[in-house]
Amino acid sequence: MNAASVTVLPRRTPPSILVVETDVRIRCLVSDALRALDFKVLEASSADDALTVLEAMRIDLLFVALDLSGGRSALDVARLVRTRRMPTRIILASDGVLAKTVADDFGPVLRKPYETSQVVELVIRALNWPEVPGASRGTWPVEPR
């Protein structure tokens, strides 16, 4: 097959995003901002809940805070995605302590406190949805701010 025979069709269904954050108000704000762009957004408050969701359905992007409470950590969730080779992009949110050590392994790290607009911008670039004219998939992962 030569390159000319390949037709890239536009995606018909919005990508699904799993927002994992212990603080309900932050989770609510981020999820609302993403839903406003017609993303399908699922919410989890812990690593255990996130793992349950990831086992149950396809997630296109995982946005997970590193400072989750509970037994398992956000890194456990990110590792599951990587070890199972799930087609899931990852964006981490951190207070900065672990940022440098994990950024190369999993994806960009957004430093807390962040604006919801920063999350939205990263997600749009990661998923190319809504399609950004001239955007290149080759630029992912982007440099964290």
Partner: peptide
């Protein structure tokens, strides 16, 4: 729709 996982989260919202 907003989501909460507990009574405490519900009150926070």
């Amino acid at each position: 729709v907003h989501e909460a996982v507990s009574g405490e989260e519900a009150i926070a919202i």
